[in-house]
């Protein structure tokens, strides 16, 4: 492609270091996964326990929001650098989507 840089080969120490960093990052991902499973379990058991609707709906939405943030920032790497444009695109889409959501609901519910 347009890049004329030569292929850079890591030294043995450098290579072992990056592998260790990646392994630790992967351990972090597994922890994220465990948290997501835990949040899902709370959501399902809260519904199965049959609390009042007004108590449970905000909790369910909060749990979903946390889980989506974990998925986006860790599994989809948005927390890493070089993701400014990715975040800009996604939040633009989310804001537009939220406007659609408000419009639909106000038209249908208040008529």
């Amino acid at each position: 492609m347009s890049h004329d840089a030569h292929v850079y080969s890591k030294s043995q120490t450098e290579y072992e270091y990056t592998r260790r960093v990646r392994r630790e990052a992967m351990r972090g991902q597994v922890t994220t996964f465990a948290i997501m499973i835990f949040l899902t379990l709370i959501a399902f058991s809260a519904v199965a326990a049959g609390f009042s609707e007004y108590f449970i709906v905000p909790i369910l939405l909060l749990l979903a929001a946390i889980q989506v943030v974990l998925q986006l920032y860790y599994f989809m790497h948005m927390s890493e650098k070089n993701h400014g444009m990715a975040a800009f695109f996604l939040y633009s889409g989310a804001i537009l989507g939220f406007t659609l959501f408000l419009t639909f609901l106000t038209i249908v519910w208040w008529n």
């Binding site: 444009m85 990715a86 695109f89 996604l90 889409g93 537009l96 989507g97 639909f104 038209i107 249908v108």
Partner: peptide, 26 residues
């Protein structure tokens, strides 16, 4: 590809928002 794919995901977010809005309304 990376940038274009995130733009596509933004579009998908709008698509699913409209479907969720429709579902909640109906």
């Amino acid at each position: 590809k990376f940038l274009g794919f995130w733009l596509f995901l933004a579009g998908e977010t709008v698509l699913f928002s409209s479907l969720f809005a429709t579902y909640l309304a109906l």
